[in-house]
Amino acid sequence: MSDRLSGLFFFLLAAGYVWLSAGYTAGFGDPLGPAIFPRVIGIPAVILGLSLLIWPRHDAVWAGRAGLLRQAAAITILLGYALLLEPFGFVPATFSAILGLGLLMGAPPLRGLLMAALAAPGLYLLFDRLMGLPLPLIGSWFG
């Protein structure tokens, strides 16, 4: 089933990709133009996607309910970390992310808290102060 779905996905993606390439035109001087290369790679992808849809071979085994929930939570944390790094500043955002991910991976709460409380300022000191990478200490919301 998973092969059929990925085949369908690739088929639609590549078809859309080739279709969009028609809009890319340029003037003279370039025998190839910006549209040909996308077709050179898009058309085989359409065919391969279709073949995967028709002749699937492999079926993915996904994690159980608990595993999928953990993964969804991790993705939320990763997105939140990306969005909040600037507003929160490096240390608070990193503290939250390390704590959240640590707990997801089964850290005992107190030790996970300790780890995050040490690691977030520690990374800041190591990379910003010691090695000179500019990181936002306090975010725009607080500063």
């Binding site: 970390y81 790094l85 990193t94 991910l101 991976m105 990374l123």
Partner: peptide
């Protein structure tokens, strides 16, 4: 749980 979150933080920074 102590190492993997550090990998994430180092990737981000």
């Amino acid at each position: 749980w102590g190492l993997m979150p550090l990998v994430v933080a180092i990737s981000y920074l």
